[in-house]
Write a protein that binds this DNA or RNA. Structure first.
Lengths: 272, 272
DNA sequence: TGAGAAGTGAAACAATAATTCCAGTCATAA
DNA sequence: TTATGACTGGAATTATTGTTTCACTTCTCA
């Protein structure tokens, strides 16, 4: 009879206990099941009032479920609302408390997996379909697609270059060959499109290349992580992709998913 | 200069103001835009710490936007989360409704996202912790880590090379330079480790390189997709990662998650 | 270059919120 | 019916959290 640490188990536990709980505690149980977000956001006083019980009843209720106090139970309600990614220390601590044994590496793995899942969910909610259409449209009409993505973004741009190549779509991966990047991109004209990918801390070379190219009126599409990105003002459209991180290492799952979408959608569009 | 009461307006206001905000306040602005959930749930102290500012700066920031104090601004962040969660219940239905009218590109996007999520979940269940430990151990002891991954796997190997580089771990990304791959890898000795990544259809060059190297008793670790992979018999340990695909394009989310795990775990191990 | 304004960090302080305590009520069983 | 133990309400206490203040630093413009 250990205390549920995640929302689903907690909910099940409440349902199971509720029938044989004293009157006021049952009242809290009912209220809790019906007003998840009130519990998550409210204060003891506000919830007590809404549920028409005393503040102390809330604490008792929490304790009867095995929690230290109301705040402890509230954490579980909150954790459901934010798919929070625990950091390394927290995970270790969490495992220690719950006597789960796992290797360090598997802790790290689950951290990265969580980060990926979270990033994907975030982007699913945020991605603007009309922007996507606009970008696909531009890329489909482009003569050559110039891909700019260095350092951390290089895996993305190189993937796109590979996939575009496979699909028979003319593209130029900047920085891939031994040549000078600035020279490669200087071939871009108004009939082409530059697809730039850059995240904090924006590689200065990427920024400079894109700015120079934008100055020559070459259309720019960007994938970046913030409205403050130096790419945001010069690209149209631009996509905001925020990758969750674990221990400072950002996931790339969402960006990659978007990159794959663009390549495949462009290929589909061109087939017509 | 009315104060935004809903999240979208608030966000727009922050973006608009941020450029000419003092340093620390701008720092808060950036943080706020990137960590909605943290602002919604955190306390002044915890957020201040995460954003690396003083608690007072958060209050000032709030006031500069016209709010009475931090709590007032926090309410706006919370209200958004409430709305979002309310929608979350109906999300499946919502998605279904929009799926009909959704653009082609967003369908593709959600297809790739699904594939990524699925791949991640699969690997979470299947990944063997002891193999992971073994691999980390070998890589931590290696003199130089040789990374072999071409074509579709190149984004993975290039990411690892970048990350290892950042972490100060000596590595050699095969196929990256203009040189001959077979020559590069011929430097690998028993004291090194080769990390090979290859999926169906296994690039013949990758296979040949790895086989030749294995013949010289260089330890091999592989990430591949089947026990029948030509890498499986010559690598120890080897990881089976099966990526779900959408329209024939395989996700890379799980592989990438594993790759990141290996890099970070090796760095951690070496620190000791 | 220096005076003044604007911005910042750290700690004191104030407010708010959670928890505990205890007296009193209610249900149960002898 | 009354004695016992569980339950409850409300206030006191304690802890946590948000806000303000002030000395100090950094910019800005004459």
């Amino acid at each position: 009879m250990e205390t549920p640490r995640d929302f689903d188990n907690l909910k099940a536990r409440i349902v199971e206990r509720a029938p044989n709980l004293p009157r006021r505690l049952a009242q809290v149980a009912t209220y809790a099941l019906e007003h998840h977000d009130e519990i998550a956001f409210g204060t003891v006083a506000s919830i007590a009032q809404a549920a028409e019980v005393q503040p102390s009843t809330l604490v008792r209720f929490s304790q009867s479920l095995g929690y230290a106090g109301f705040s402890d139970l509230q954490d579980v309600f909150r954790s459901r609302l934010r798919d929070r990614i625990m950091n390394y220390e927290e995970r270790i601590e969490h495992m220690r408390e719950h006597a789960i044994t796992a290797s360090k590496a598997s802790v790290i793995f689950s951290g990265f997996s969580d980060a990926s899942q979270k990033s994907l969910n975030d982007l699913r909610e945020k991605l603007d379909a009309s922007k996507l259409e606009e970008a696909v449209d531009m890329l489909a009409k482009a003569d050559t697609i110039f891909l700019i993505g260095l350092r951390r973004s290089f895996p993305i741009s190189s993937y796109m270059s590979y996939a575009f190549g496979k699909l028979g779509i003319r593209n130029n991966l900047i920085g891939a060959t031994g040549g000078l990047a600035s020279e490669d991109v200087s071939f871009a004209s108004k009939r082409d499109v530059v697809l730039a990918i850059s995240f904090t801390p924006y590689a200065s070379e990427t920024i400079k290349l894109v700015q120079d190219t934008a100055a020559r009126n070459v259309p720019i599409i960007a994938i970046t992580d913030s409205p403050f990105s130096p790419l945001a003002p010069i690209a149209k459209p631009w996509f905001e992709v925020q990758e969750a991180n674990f221990e400072g290492f950002r996931s790339m799952a969402a960006t990659l998913s978007l990159a794959m979408t663009l390549t495949v959608a462009v290929a589909e569009r061109r087939k017509k």
